[in-house]
């Protein structure tokens, strides 16, 4: 008992099968139908050429007119690079206000802290009266510094004088036992 595996198709058999499968031909009227259909189509490239040439002519004429009116591009002198000028920071001055308004709140606080503050001084009413008197006298022209009378203020002592009793100097007597107290 022998098992025979199916053999692959031979090359000539495959060629014959392929030739038979693809040896079909179109119907006899096929070429005539294609020719009739093609004849209905516009000629290739004609419509496009009709539009391209006038457009190219118009573009060329426009370019010539532009060059004549404005001059050739090489006539203009080359512009040297401008160095930055110190102290003319016009762009800073002309900065739009909107950019300032759009600052962050923290930036606004720091900028406001740098601005000078207006301080209101408070004076005593006697100082204000004295200052007004000075101003009045100065305007009148009869003010001389040496004529200003000032009240003599008697200052009271902050500390009362100490009552120190006078010292009594006694002469030291020379005795035999002047060496000191006897020792016990």
């Amino acid at each position: 008992m022998t098992s025979t595996a199916p053999q692959p198709m031979r090359d000539d058999e495959l060629d014959r099968l392929l030739e038979a499968a693809l040896s079909v031909s179109p119907s006899p009227t096929f070429r005539a139908r294609v020719a009739a259909r093609v004849a209905e189509e516009p000629l290739p490239g004609r419509g496009r050429n009709l539009l391209i040439w006038p457009a190219m002519a118009a573009a060329t004429a426009f370019a010539i007119v532009l060059i004549v009116v404005t001059g050739p591009p090489g006539d203009e002198a080359p512009r040297a690079p401008q160095p930055p000028v110190a102290g003319t920071a016009s762009w800073i001055v002309s900065a739009p206000a909107a950019s300032i308004e759009r600052r962050a709140p923290a930036q606004r606080r720091s900028a406001d802290s740098l601005a000078p503050r207006r301080v209101t001084a408070r004076f005593d009413h006697r100082e204000q009266e004295a200052f007004a008197w000075l101003v009045t006298r100065a305007k009148a022209g009869d003010l001389a510094p040496w004529e200003i009378e000032t009240e003599a203020v008697e200052l009271e002592p902050v500390v009362s004088p100490l009552a120190i009793p006078p010292l009594e100097v006694m002469p030291i007597g020379l005795t035999g036992d002047s060496e000191g107290d006897p020792q016990p």
Binding site: P26, S27, F30, R33, V34, R37, V38, E41, P44, G45
Partner: peptide, 17 residues
Amino acid sequence: AEDVAQDAFVRAYARFS
């Protein structure tokens, strides 16, 4: 197949230049 081939020829004619 004939319809497709005919369509292909029509397109080819449009670009035949």
